[in-house]
Design a protein around this nucleic acid. Sequence first.
DNA 1: TTATTATATTGCAATATTACGATAAAGATA
DNA 2: TATCTTTATCGTAATATTGCAATATAATAA
Lengths: 110, 110
Amino acid sequence: MGATNTENFTDKQNAIAILAKALGHPARVAIIDYLLKTDTCICGDIVNELPLAQPTVSQHLKELKNAGIIKGSIEGNAICYCIDEKALEKLQAYFVGISSKLNAKKSNCC
Amino acid sequence: MGATNTENFTDKQNAIAILAKALGHPARVAIIDYLLKTDTCICGDIVNELPLAQPTVSQHLKELKNAGIIKGSIEGNAICYCIDEKALEKLQAYFVGISSKLNAKKSNCC
DNA sequence: TTATTATATTGCAATATTACGATAAAGATA
DNA sequence: TATCTTTATCGTAATATTGCAATATAATAA
């Protein structure tokens, strides 16, 4: 064991979990923060922004990319990393949906 | 190594990461789904809903509780687990904020 | 061609997560 | 009291994650 039992959950549950997991590390949240802050997105300097070694940053970028949260396109020597809006819209929709469901019940709860 | 380097990130980044990480497993997403679906929240039957053994479910509930996403109150023999609205509102606000920032830039990006 | 620069990959050690059987703890019921 | 029900904890095995030094790769610059 140690591997997540994905088979027995719905596609939607797995999809949300993959996105959430990708944001489940402060370095990856910091990367998103940085991508939002900068106007251009030639992002070679993410490494300089983060308190982590270059290979570690590269690994975090890879995880964000695998989850579909960012995408990278080669820009000559460097790589231009950008937020993939679709993924974040999916997350936004998910949490907005939850909030409205919670407002609908309005605490008949603990 | 193996431990996350939390010290060098902002409180906000760590806070979001903790919440996101807690939702980074399909079982925990499924638990939230179930808590939203049921009107009452006497939730002893979460175990029956999930394709996991009881100790595993208990562990996932504990992680959601530690992250502040759910709270549990003793209800006689059983325990009433409920969503903690504050945590989910924080997540919702975070993603709504991101989406509006993304709309403001409107793809001068890859 | 030979640097130089930017990013990725490999290999590895430390730690965390996932999952479950066995068992404990605590209230409810007979 | 004895038993049942519900949930938590312990112990443990399998796997994943985190982080970095060393190295590889690939484009650019000299």
